[in-house]
Design a binder for these strands. Structure first.
Lengths: 190, 190
DNA sequence: CTGTGTGTTTAGTAGCAACTAAACAAAGTA
DNA sequence: TACTTTGTTTAGTTGCTACTAAACACACAG
């Protein structure tokens, strides 16, 4: 059982990546697919992936396509061969940047934008609302609450903008590798 | 409808944070709870949170506790008052570091460790297996596949270790704020 | 035009996790 | 002791999504 042992180790590795995958809210199949591709020296066809996993063709088909969209795998086609072959990306820093780029289009940035919209809503009608009601007790309280909310939302937006800048710089990098991270670590330790 | 308008804006904001929350795989209720606390000038009791959201007491109870565990909100108790009061953390950089710290205990690091375990499995029995079978065709192929997998897993582990170092440095920081991020951006732009 | 090999789409299923409603626990008050 | 006020736990429901099985689409071969 020498060769079976390699299969067992591969299976463990595949299961580990599956768990990581679902920890990040992604289908387990995506982790499994990436695992088998990552350990395969040559590109694999869809049916070969099916053979090495516990999933059906339909599931593999959809999952491998979203993996390709994320930049985690690459589709190859050999000429004279109707099959598609898939290869794992092995530069994880590339993957990180690819994922960060995809963040724009996602549901996430739409939600972020809604925070910005909340701020302009609060900043609009600056006195009109706050001074309209002349009963001063209620008026003062409402005004204070309004100001408080405006300040808080402004702070949150500033935080998000800062993060957005960071992401933008990262995605704009020509290259990114271990050394890049090392330099950041050095800066932070100082 | 002056005061209703503030409520509407708050409602929009709450919904925005709810969406962000579920985008990150967290319950929508957590985003909603944080939103109402974040916009409230004073700490709120559990029942007050219930009143300002669409969720029941049980859901709020569990969600607000996990929020507290994550460091996103803080529990306060007034003496002579049996109620618990909750306050939103407004330093998001603190929150980020708090969450990064909690990552250790999670299912995630267990999965990461399994990658490390895969590597030691592959590095064990270095020749025993690869040289055992004397049929050279099959032997060579099996050996090459083994070596390839070992290299790949080693690369992945190195990437994870690098990230882990970065996280460790961040959590060890005395302070972290906009300026910290600005410095990193400056370094990367250079 | 039929048949075969490939990938995609769809209808239905199953499992999981958030949530509701209500029972429960605990601690103070009468 | 019973009653009230708080928070927690539990049993059950709902809704979402990954997945399966199978139908479908398409391209090439004979």
């Amino acid at each position: 059982m020498p060769s079976t042992e390699l299969h067992e180790i591969k299976a463990d590795f595949t299961q580990g990546l599956s768990q990581i995958s679902q920890f990040w809210g992604l289908p387990k199949s995506m982790g499994a697919i990436f695992a088998v591709l990552y350990l395969s020296p040559n590109a694999l066809s869809l049916d070969e992936i099916v053979a090495e996993t516990t999933f059906t063709k339909g599931a593999i088909s959809t999952s491998v396509r979203t993996l390709a969209r994320m930049g985690l795998v690459h589709r190859q086609t050999k000429l004279g061969d109707r099959k598609d072959y898939y290869l794992a990306e092995d530069d994880f820093y590339k993957v990180v940047r690819s994922i960060l780029k995809g963040r724009e289009s996602s549901e996430f940035s739409r939600a972020i934008d809604s925070v910005g919209q909340t701020l302009v809503d609060l900043q609009a009608s600056p006195n009109q609302v706050r001074g309209a009601d002349e009963q001063r007790g209620a008026d003062e309280q409402r005004g204070a609450e309004w100001d408080f909310a405006e300040n808080r939302v402004a702070e949150m937006k500033s935080f998000f903008d800062n993060l957005d800048n960071l992401v933008r710089v990262i995605t704009a990098l020509e290259t990114m590798n271990q050394n890049t991270v090392q330099k950041v670590i050095g800066l932070l330790k100082k």
